[in-house]
Amino acid sequence: MSSVSIVDVNKQYGGLTVLPSLSLAIPKGSFTVIVGPSGCGKSTLLRIVAGLESTSGGQILIGDRDVTQVDAAERGIAMVFQSYALYPHMTVAENIGFPLRMSRVAKPEADRKVLDAASILKLEHLLDRKPKALSGGQRQRVAIGRAIVREPDVFLFDEPLSNLDAAMRTQMRVDLAELHRKLGATMIYVTHDQVEAMTMADQIVVMNAGRIEQVGSPMELYNTPRTEFVAGFLGAPKMNFLTGEFAKPYDAETLGIRPEHITIEAAPAVWTARVRHLERLGASTVYYLDIHDGQSVIVTASGEDVHEIGSEIGLHPREDRLHRFRAGVRQE
């Protein structure tokens, strides 16, 4: 296991700048999730770390070793691809064993390692199948198996769960987090899904338009987002952003408050609102509310007290949970 350092890396395609200069430290043994909307450059960054793309400038260090000019194969990195990239003509065992075969590991030792990986991933009974005969989740596990047999210093994941159905995705999130604890290796995981980021990461890196917006632990980013972008990107339902007469009393251009930090109470109401729509989730209810000035807020409340559509209610934001933004940046 190794740390990964990205130092002043930038990337241009022709005249187009995909990544302006960017630096990032990924601690040894961490599970770092790089998250952002599609086209933000997160996959390019991952591919640069993998060695599949060259940099236009800057350095990549794995541990203390500068690998900027080193071949992908020689970086001690394994990668799990979005499409899994299993070799269709090889069985599960051959797929998992392929990197060992390429590294000229002796056959008995390779077989043992393949079996170990298969047992970690509960694939023992599928070893003789071809990828075509596997479900999406099983293919995903084979791809992971192919990565772990090499005992790499660093694992890379490129949106590995996006081709799975919702139930399988939840299951795999748990499995991946457990795998990380078991192996203790450094993992870098790219996704556009903030739920995956929040649930699995030790460290989240939020990217937007080729730049890093903020780096930190999930709760750090959730509770003290540095920018409006990060505040809006993490959390569901999204943070409410209010302007004008709502923001002014708090000395902010934009006032941010999460749906679960507004309480519904008759008095002393700070804002009054009308219920436009509501979604009952059982444990909680999500209210879509109209307030003055054409603005609206979303409030998550306990599932027990139900206000009907059209009714007038009073709202009370929690003062200690307000986020004040000026020019998109959070003010302390």
Binding site: A50, L52, A73, Y87, F98
Partner: peptide, 9 residues
Amino acid sequence: EAALMDRCG
């Protein structure tokens, strides 16, 4: 690319 990562030339 997967094969490249798997140390295949």
